[in-house]
Computed example of a mutant assay.
Amino acid sequence: MSQDQHGDLSAFSMLDLFRMEADSQTQILTDGLLAMERHAGDAAAVEAMMRAAHSIKGAAAIVGLQVVVQLAHGMEDSFVAAQHGRLKLTPERVDVLLSGVDLIVQLSRLDDAGAEAWLAANAAQIDQTLNAIAGIADLPELPALPAAPTPAAAP
């Protein structure tokens, strides 16, 4: 699936276009979240992730993928809260958001024929992930580990 040399996307279905959008936006989310997990990110990274979640939400709404709309909406809310200082993106919260990204990737790769069966077979995982993202602000922050004692100087 690629554009022709003139940028014509008319040969693609709306679902194909959604898949292309989801691929690029989930990469932004994954990269940003992994950077957050390694070290506290900056406001620009959170802004980029908020925009990516918003784009996924809109694209999913166009093609009627309500589960993806819900996942992306919850993620977008988390990023907005982080932007306003109401939510710290701790490693535990990043893990929850990454599970949402993984689920969006899986959902975006389903073909029309198998989508319904996959959704039914994975309903528990989907509900668990949706609930975890909705309750992300309730996740406790782990206390900081005490600093390691400095070794005593050799006599």
Score class of each variant (00 low, 15 high):
24 S>R: 15
99 S>R: 15
150 T>N: 12
50 M>C: 06
107 L>N: 10
5 Q>P: 00
43 A>M: 09
150 T>P: 05
16 D>V: 12
102 D>M: 07
47 E>T: 15
130 L>I: 01
139 L>A: 05
10 S>G: 14
65 L>D: 06
146 P>R: 07
23 D>M: 06
141 E>R: 06
30 T>C: 01
129 T>F: 05
50 M>N: 04
108 S>H: 14
59 A>W: 02
19 R>E: 06
101 V>P: 02
149 P>H: 10
69 V>L: 11
78 S>W: 02
6 H>P: 01
43 A>T: 10
29 L>I: 09
114 G>L: 04
117 A>Y: 00
59 A>T: 07
76 E>C: 05
51 R>S: 11
30 T>D: 14
44 A>V: 04
10 S>D: 12
34 L>W: 00
98 L>V: 10
96 V>H: 01
82 A>H: 01
41 G>W: 00
119 L>H: 14
114 G>W: 03
103 L>H: 08
82 A>I: 07
128 Q>A: 15
76 E>T: 00
50 M>L: 09
5 Q>D: 13
138 D>R: 15
63 V>D: 01
64 G>Q: 03
15 L>K: 07
47 E>F: 12
35 A>Y: 01
74 G>Q: 09
140 P>V: 14
12 F>G: 08
56 I>L: 13
56 I>A: 05
77 D>L: 09
118 W>T: 09
45 A>F: 04
32 G>F: 05
75 M>I: 08
134 A>W: 03
60 A>H: 02
36 M>G: 04
84 H>Q: 14
138 D>G: 08
82 A>K: 09
118 W>C: 05
24 S>F: 09
82 A>V: 02
44 A>D: 07
89 L>Y: 06
11 A>N: 02
146 P>E: 08
25 Q>D: 11
26 T>S: 08
107 L>F: 08
133 I>R: 08
71 L>A: 04
33 L>N: 01
130 L>H: 08
51 R>C: 02
122 N>H: 15
128 Q>H: 12
3 Q>W: 10
64 G>M: 03
100 G>C: 12
152 A>G: 12
79 F>E: 10
36 M>H: 08
56 I>R: 00
78 S>D: 01
8 D>P: 14
123 A>G: 03
143 P>L: 08
84 H>N: 12
120 A>G: 01
153 A>Q: 12
30 T>H: 09
19 R>K: 09
43 A>C: 02
116 E>T: 12
141 E>G: 07
116 E>L: 13
72 A>E: 03
137 A>Y: 06
21 E>T: 11
151 P>C: 03
12 F>I: 08
84 H>I: 01
97 L>I: 08
17 L>M: 13
55 S>K: 03
62 I>R: 08
82 A>C: 02
38 R>T: 14
103 L>W: 08
133 I>V: 15
135 G>F: 15
137 A>N: 10
149 P>M: 09
98 L>P: 10
114 G>M: 09
153 A>W: 07
39 H>Y: 00
15 L>N: 07
